[in-house]
């Protein structure tokens, strides 16, 4: 700050200012000083407001969830029954937690290979003229609001899967132990699998764009050396690009996982809102965010508090996943900076 004022003083002493006529230097200086100070504090307080928002989120969730925490304690975590209209209401988070984890897991199972595949295509294989259009299409996919995905899944994808893909898988694995139970019938418009597929499509762009970014940090010399000793494209990717960027890819995947865990509107329409846990992924289920979205507006008392407690669980879960993702990406940035 002191440096700024010293410089300002020089400006005031310059000839141009003198020519402008009588000029109160002290007044001008104090105006500068005041302007500097206000601007500094406006920006600093705005920056601190980010911390306040995080604090506010945590505080308001804890306050809202407190009645349910007191009533159910830790057993909230492993109770499957969700009966808000019973007297007294019985609430358990097991069903939504199971749905959240299973849909996110299946979504990542689909999205990770496809997302990284697209990134390899874009950085290593794609002709230059096609790079921008495909890259842009994938990024636009990320921009579509989630309710559009949900609606599309509800009207188009759900019926399609129930009529073609699901019966096929059910027949294929009929009688096979374990897998037979995972792919059990009947086919359904509303199911965990449909929700997971929509989630996979939604998080695909995140994985792709971060993978493309981190692939670009690989020094060309490394790749050229590998090509020089006769490696094929796949060998270069597997033995040079992926090991070099492993931390960044994991960071990108965790970022996408954070999104998938908390995604609401895309899932709510097509998951069926059933709190019962069933072994088949073609059966309806629910996720934490879907449960909150569909029940919160009409809830009160303990029921509402239970929903906020679900929200608190989701927030803690995504917070750790996202924080982990950031730490991974920071590590890669440091490496790239060296």
């Amino acid at each position: 700050m002191t440096q700024g004022i010293g410089v300002a003083e020089m400006a005031v002493q310059s000839d141009i200012v003198d020519d402008a006529g009588p000029y109160d230097r002290a007044k001008a200086l104090s105006a500068f000083k005041l302007g500097d100070l206000t601007f500094y504090w406006i920006t600093r307080l705005s920056a601190i407001s980010v911390l306040l928002i995080l604090g506010g989120i945590i505080l308001s969730l804890i306050v809202g969830a407190f009645p349910a925490m007191k009533e159910y304690g830790l057993s909230f975590l492993w109770t499957q029954r969700w009966a808000p209209s019973a007297d007294p209401p019985v609430l358990g988070a097991l069903g939504p937690m199971y749905g959240t984890l299973v849909t996110s897991f299946i979504a990542m199972l689909i999205a990770i290979p496809v997302g990284i595949g697209i990134a390899i295509f874009l950085t290593e294989l794609c002709p230059q003229w096609l790079r921008r259009p495909i890259g842009m299409a994938v990024e636009l996919l990320a921009g579509i609001p989630s309710i559009i995905y949900g609606m599309w899944g509800f009207f188009v994808l759900g019926p399609f899967l129930a009529n073609t893909f699901q019966p096929f898988m059910i027949r294929l694995f009929d009688g096979v132990p374990v897998l037979g139970a995972v792919f059990a019938g009947p086919p359904s418009y509303l199911s965990l699998f449909n929700a997971a597929l929509i989630l996979a499509i939604m998080v695909l762009p995140f994985i792709t764009s971060i993978s493309v970014d981190v692939f670009k940090t690989v020094p060309p010399v490394l790749k050229e050396a590998a090509y020089g000793v006769g490696c094929t494209t796949w060998e270069v990717v597997r033995s040079v690009v992926i090991p070099y960027t492993r931390v960044g890819i994991i960071g990108g995947v965790m970022l996408a996982l954070g999104r998938a865990l908390g995604e609401t509107m895309a899932v709510t329409f097509i998951i069926g809102n059933s709190f019962r846990i069933q072994s088949s992924i073609f059966a309806p289920g629910t996720t934490i965010s879907a449960a909150i979205a569909s029940e919160f507006a009409e809830s009160d008392g303990l029921h509402q508090s239970g929903l906020i407690l679900l929200g608190l669980l989701l927030f803690v879960l995504t917070f750790f996943v996202l924080a982990g993702a950031r730490l991974m990406l920071l590590r890669l940035e440091k490496k790239a900076g060296k």
Binding site: V50, I57, G64, G258, E263, I292, F296, L314, T318, F319
Partner: peptide, 12 residues
């Protein structure tokens, strides 16, 4: 982290 936090939590 807030950038990717679930928007339904912001609603709550």
């Amino acid at each position: 982290i807030l950038l990717s936090a679930p928007s339904i939590i912001i609603g709550l």
